[in-house]
Amino acid sequence: MSKTPDTSDNNIDEKLAVIRHILLHGDRARIEQLEEIIQNTDLLSEHVNPIIDHKIANIKDDFSNVFGNEVGTEFEKKLLLSEDLLLTVLSPMMGKMMRKYISKEIQGLKDKIDQQFKRSFSFKRYYHLIRAKVFGIESSAIILAGLEDFKTRIQDIFIIQRNSGLVLGSAHASEAELGDGDIFSGMLTAIKAFGEDAFNKAGSEKQELEFIEYDSNKIFLQSHHNYFFAAVLNGTMSLSEKDDLANQLMEFADKEKKLNLQEINGEDSAYISDQLKNTFFSQD
């Protein structure tokens, strides 16, 4: 009895498995390696990060070309949606900037008008001069009388002892005084002292602090031997208005002899404050 060759399915499968093993060995090894890389975050990062970095670098370099339109459209949409909010935030700042700019321009205009009137010999000049004389105000002020917002307003006047910074007297346009007058005067004296120390060099002419500006508020200072005036102003101030105020303060200083006393008690201080109020705020 002859032996038939083994052609069973099992035998074929085994042979195929051997062939598969031989042919696919390399691929399997690579698949295993890839699986290991995918499952291990560190290894995966090592391979993927350079690609992502490269992509990010490309986006950075060419962002406007790639996303310009989308970002622009999105930004426009957001701006339109936030219009009210933006206006709320920006309006006060813009208003302030505009007001400051206009104030400065008006001040320049006032100065120019005053200069023009000084140079001019026209009939108009005499007309305005007569009006100015009658009403006791500057020509530029007549012309700009309609612009109430830009008139200089004296808010507070302090008389401050020169070295100690103690208030000798004060008067205010309204009940709402500028913070605490004593602390204001003390700090103002310290600022003044600091400025004088910084700028007055030995042998040079003594200089005095004359103006402090804070937005549309100004502090005009006039120094005397034992004391100084500090006038808190609001609005613009032309050169002639500054001269007028300086003259008024000088006249007050000449008139009030009590200011030259070395020691001023509460009674003297109340008297000086009353005189200040009568002189500078009685018409208000």
Binding site: N163, G165, A190, A193
Partner: peptide, 8 residues
């Protein structure tokens, strides 16, 4: 600064 002392 000397001026800080004055009037003290």
């Amino acid at each position: 600064p000397l001026s800080y002392f004055l009037g003290t």
